[in-house]
Design a protein around this nucleic acid. Structure first.
Lengths: 142, 142
DNA sequence: ATGAAATTGAAAACCATTTTCAATTATACT
DNA sequence: AGTATAATTGAAAATGGTTTTCAATTTCAT
């Protein structure tokens, strides 16, 4: 976690932004959980120990964490932005259960390769991609 | 287009919903364009010829069109729901340009097959999937 | 035709996200 | 260490797409 904190501070310095106690606390709260957190989730978690930190600050800091390359957005189809750890976490796709809402992180190197080939075919300079498979997990299958 | 209208009416009857002139006009407006339309886009288009149709009715009818299997939601990463034709249009994925915002519809049968295999491996009952590749199109490449 | 139930449009509510603004704080520079 | 400058903060309000409410209207089975 120390490495991530350093990366975050570097990111701030690079943009001539300031290192504040709020920003560090919000980063720590984000790093502490492995779940996919919405801004609201994180705000509630942080508020327990730090009731003085405001929602807007959490929101703004999450943007900075993303810019520093420490978090990426996950889109589960509702209209809520959730973040997952990026640093030290390989790219992966999601299997999302339409009934219980749980999701599973998966990775298939062959698919990744074919995706690159597909982009190449269309002379498209791919930066990132999202693949989500929706359906019913083992437990929720009828 | 006649076939789609019939499917829509069937969908309504099946749910004991009523066939109204507003619903039919909104469906026609949706079928008439091949672009990916947001609710707002469609509302504006419809309003030109039918200023008496309200936003809420467009919104509600779009849900019905989706339920009837005539439209599917496209997520371009902003938080706006857009619809594309589903009936008579094969499944496809998107290449989305981060600079100009244009998108290209693509299809790769090998990827589709691997996706199914992936779901199978996790004993996941896949219903649908979304794959979007973000990057820079031929014209916007630096 | 008639009545029950569905639909409509306008307006308001909702809710995640984003901005505004005055007060506070971090940082660079004496 | 003190100070000036610019960034940050929290609260509240604004935004913007989506969704609900409600009284008036319309559809459709009978």
């Amino acid at each position: 976690m120390q490495k991530e904190i350093e990366l975050f501070k570097d990111g701030l310095k690079k943009e001539k932004l300031k290192i504040t106690s709020q920003r560090l606390k919000i980063l720590e709260a984000f790093l502490k959980t492995e779940r996919h957190m919405s801004c609201d989730d994180l705000y509630r978690a942080i508020r327990r120990g730090n009731p003085e930190i405001g929602y807007a600050t959490v929101y703004r800091t999450l943007k900075l964490i993303q810019k520093a390359g420490l978090a990426r957005e996950v889109d589960l189809g509702d209209r809520v932005s959730r973040l997952e750890h990026e640093y030290g976490h390989k790219h992966h796709d999601h299997l999302i259960c339409l009934k219980c809402g749980r999701f599973f992180e998966v990775f298939d190197p062959e698919i990744e390769q074919l995706q690159e080939r597909l982009a190449l075919k269309y002379k498209f300079n791919a930066v990132k991609h999202k693949m989500d498979i929706f359906g019913y997990c083992r437990k929720c299958k009828s």
